[in-house]
């Protein structure tokens, strides 16, 4: 059984006060996420990531399509007891302390009061909030709220955890801790589905990623497969201010500084470039293969001009 199965899920919002125009937030999306995977859901602002998560959580009703989590339909309480959810920029009852909030949420998820009382302090330790356990949430900073949000999403030991931008609002230490935590969760056998803009996090953590843009799924796959698909580049540096004629035909990007030149050429034209340098008698100083990052891939998929068009107003 797959952990998450999304079948043609779509959402159209009516927008405008008087004459409602349809706004397509998510085009029919199909995805399958296996148990034990860390799955990254990437996309620029307004891509439809949060919309997808809200539909999976039963907070917003889909305009079409269905989804099953742990083999059960959206909104099924037996399934909801086994999942955790961290919303984007979470906000909680600010009259409560983290201890009270987590106890309350534990009870709503079906923990007995005893179990909740045992688990809550452990969880507060785990997210680094031991010292703030009895401070009212209205006095919390954004990053502290994010930590409470993470704690409430995993408190009841769910099988599948949905995190909407788990790293946002965290300091570098916090980000690092959350990364570690996500890895621990994977070791515990949980499935993690998280959305993010921070590509290095996705690259470091995810087994697979999906790239969403303007409500449309662009790509799904393992990070390595996606990045190798666009092919790497080679950086060549040589002494002498001349750039051989052949380089412009190779699609090279050249920068001359003083008496050295740095050129970026596609991996496939490595031989031709070396040959051109030899013919001109230029002395090569270094040759470095540049690995394509998920970031490069993402940029190649999502053209900047389109990205702004899809952004929120």
């Amino acid at each position: 059984m797959s952990a998450i199965e999304i079948l043609g899920l779509e959402k159209t919002y009516p927008v405008g006060f008087w004459r409602k125009r349809p706004k397509r937030a998510l085009k029919p999306l199909s995805l399958t996420i296996e148990e034990g995977e860390i799955f990254g859901f990437l996309g620029p602002n307004g891509a439809g990531k949060t919309t997808t998560l809200k539909m999976l959580m039963g907070l917003v009703f889909p305009s079409g399509g269905t989804a099953r989590i742990l083999g059960r339909p959206i909104g099924d309480p037996a399934m909801q007891a086994q999942i955790g959810f961290l919303p984007e920029q979470p906000y909680f009852y600010d009259h409560l302390t983290p201890r009270e909030l987590l106890t309350y949420y534990g009870q709503l998820s079906g923990l007995t009061t005893k179990e909740a009382e045992r688990k809550v302090p452990e969880m507060l330790d785990r997210v680094g909030l031991r010292d703030a356990a009895n401070v009212q949430l209205r006095k919390f900073s954004k990053g502290m709220l994010q930590r409470v949000g993470i704690a409430q999403s995993i408190l009841h030991n769910p099988k599948v955890v949905f995190l909407d931008e788990p790293m946002s609002g965290l300091d570098p230490m916090g980000r690092h801790e959350v990364r570690d935590l996500i890895e621990q969760l994977k070791h515990e056998g949980k499935t993690i589905f998280f959305s993010t803009h921070i590509l290095s996090d996705a690259e470091a953590l995810c087994d697979r990623v999906a790239i969403l843009h303007l409500g449309e799924l662009r790509k799904v796959g393992a990070v390595a497969d996606l990045t190798s698909a666009i092919g790497g580049r080679i950086e060549l540096v040589w002494r002498g201010a001349t750039i051989p004629q052949a380089f412009s035909a190779l699609g090279a990007e050249c920068h001359a500084t003083g008496d050295t030149v740095r050129a970026l050429v596609p991996e496939s034209s490595q031989e031709a470039a070396m040959e051109a340098l030899r013919r001109e008698g230029l002395r090569l100083i270094s040759l470095t293969p540049l690995r394509t990052s998920l970031e490069d891939y993402f940029v190649s998929q999502v053209k900047p001009s389109e990205a702004t068009a899809g952004g929120k107003p």
Binding site: G58, P77, Q80, A81, F85, P90
Partner: peptide, 14 residues
């Protein structure tokens, strides 16, 4: 408005 409902209704609460 405050979105406190998200973390309640995503639990097994009807």
């Amino acid at each position: 408005e405050k979105r406190t409902l998200y973390t309640v209704l995503s639990r097994p609460v009807r």
